[in-house]
């Protein structure tokens, strides 16, 4: 005799369009540090076990977006694996320990990998997630293919880890298995405009703006009138 509908819903096997609050409850949610962003993301924050792609030119506040989350994650006794980095006119940019420390990240937890090619980069990302010893994995992949992302997603969900990717290739509208895909553009030194291309469990929303803390953009050093030292 078929089960009554409400019993089936109670057991959570039916996905309902509007109730996005309680999917996969056992996955932990991390406050992003920005109120507007929390509202926009499913589960009010970054979801563990999900890959998130962020599309932006370097220098548009794309890393400051995740710094508050990284600061909290660095309290866990696990690594934050940082694979590769963006390029600026051919030169590989290096993370500056002082900036991370100023943002509250415990840099003893950060482990950096300089892959010599894309294939090694992907292996490192996977190795980090599969080992279960990384609280978060960050990558700047030069090329993305769906099976890779799916494998990252799976490894990520098994060990309650977070994964952020900043692809160095333009946004591919044909879709990707990643759970969340965001686009970032800087309006002013402290204003960012964020667009959710995809977020699992919700329709893609309108672009919204959020303000960065001053330190993220070097704002505190106020201008000194017409200063030209000799």
């Amino acid at each position: 005799m078929p089960l009554p509908l409400d019993q089936v819903i109670a057991s959570g096997q039916v996905w309902q369009g509007r109730t996005n609050a309680d999917c996969q409850p056992e996955h932990s949610v991390l406050d992003t540090g920005f109120r507007r962003l929390n509202e926009a993301l499913p589960g009010h924050g970054w979801q563990s076990g999900q890959v998130c792609e962020i599309y932006a030119h370097s220098g548009h506040g794309e890393v400051s977006l995740v710094l508050p989350a990284l600061a909290r994650l660095s309290q866990q006794p696990r690594w934050i694996l940082w694979v590769g980095s963006p390029h600026s006119e051919g030169a590989k940019l290096l993370p500056q320990a002082a900036a991370l420390q100023q943002a509250g990240v415990d840099i003893r937890r950060v482990l950096l990998v300089h892959p010599k090619d894309e294939q090694q980069a992907m292996w490192s990302l996977e190795e980090g997630l599969k080992s279960g010893h990384c609280s978060a994995v960050l990558g700047w992949p030069g090329q993305l293919n769906k099976p890779h992302i799916r494998r990252l997603q799976l490894a990520c969900s098994r060990h309650q880890s977070y994964c952020w990717l900043w692809p160095r290739i333009p946004f591919d509208p044909s879709g990707s298995p990643a759970a969340v895909r965001l686009g970032i553009e800087r309006r002013s030194p402290t204003e960012l405009s964020v667009e959710c291309y995809k977020r699992r469990g919700l329709w893609p929303g309108q672009p919204f703006t959020l303000t960065l803390p001053d330190t993220a953009s070097g704002k505190t050093a106020l201008p000194v009138h017409s200063l030209q030292t000799q």
């Binding site: 890393v63 600026s88 940019l93 002082a98 900036a99 201008p223």
Partner: peptide
């Protein structure tokens, strides 16, 4: 305040137009 990214070597560049701080 320090930027997240550093260039491996400082690169010469033209005189900036818009200074925010310093």
């Amino acid at each position: 305040p320090r930027p997240v990214w550093l260039l491996p070597e400082p690169r010469p560049c033209p005189r900036p137009q818009q200074i925010i701080a310093g």
